[in-house]
């Protein structure tokens, strides 16, 4: 079906004109957004370097790349799974609210608010079974939405290591989130 422009009434012509103007404005806006600085391309090697490098929160560009690229996300999950010697899966579906304890395979992570300093939390990583000869040096917490934090662990003594963190630190938020996974290596 086709209509000639001359066959349209004034109301129809006005509506089409308005729609075309709106599309033109949308194109202009899209071009302006697209002409911004190109986003850095994050490759697997960058994620690998992050896991091996100094412990920091995952940069925003990395998170965006993991969200936008399911293949990269799958490779990253596989990298963490292969790198980690101990793992704590997401909490059971029945879990709701925030957690203070996470039980993994052979270890437990507890969050304990400090009595001595308000607003600070102890992170206690404890082995529940045999204490490994070579305890882990890194802890990573990942969330399906791309968030990820990695920490260097202090020395383990008597099967446990302890970190102190601010209550509002991202690692605390992620550890309390039942949807996150924890990796130790």
């Amino acid at each position: 079906m086709s209509n000639s422009w001359s066959g349209l009434n004034a109301k129809q012509k006005s509506g089409i004109t308005a729609a075309l103007e709106a599309l033109t404005a949308l194109d202009t806006l899209s071009q302006a957004i697209a002409s911004g600085p190109p986003a850095p391309r994050i490759a697997f090697r960058d994620l690998l370097a992050w896991t091996k490098g100094p412990a920091v929160n995952l940069p925003i560009a990395y998170k965006q790349a993991l969200l936008a690229n399911p293949t990269l996300r799958r490779d990253f999950d596989r990298l963490l799974a292969k790198t980690a010697e101990w793992r704590c899966e997401r909490a059971a579906a029945a879990s709701s609210g925030l957690l203070d304890t996470r039980d993994g395979s052979g270890f437990r992570v507890r969050l304990k608010p400090s009595r001595a300093a308000q607003g600070q939390v102890y992170l206690l990583i404890e082995f529940t079974g045999d204490v490994p000869v070579a305890p882990p040096r890194s802890l990573a917490v990942t969330c399906a939405d791309g968030d990820c934090v990695r920490l260097e662990l202090p020395e383990f003594r008597d099967g446990s290591a302890q970190l102190l963190s601010d209550e509002n630190a991202e690692v605390v938020r992620l550890l309390r989130d039942p949807k996150t996974e924890i990796f130790l290596w």
Binding site: K112, S114, R115, A116, A117, Y122, L124, Q162
Partner: peptide
């Protein structure tokens, strides 16, 4: 110096 929870180090 402040006393803290005996459960932590």
């Amino acid at each position: 110096i402040a006393e803290d929870d005996p459960d932590v180090k």
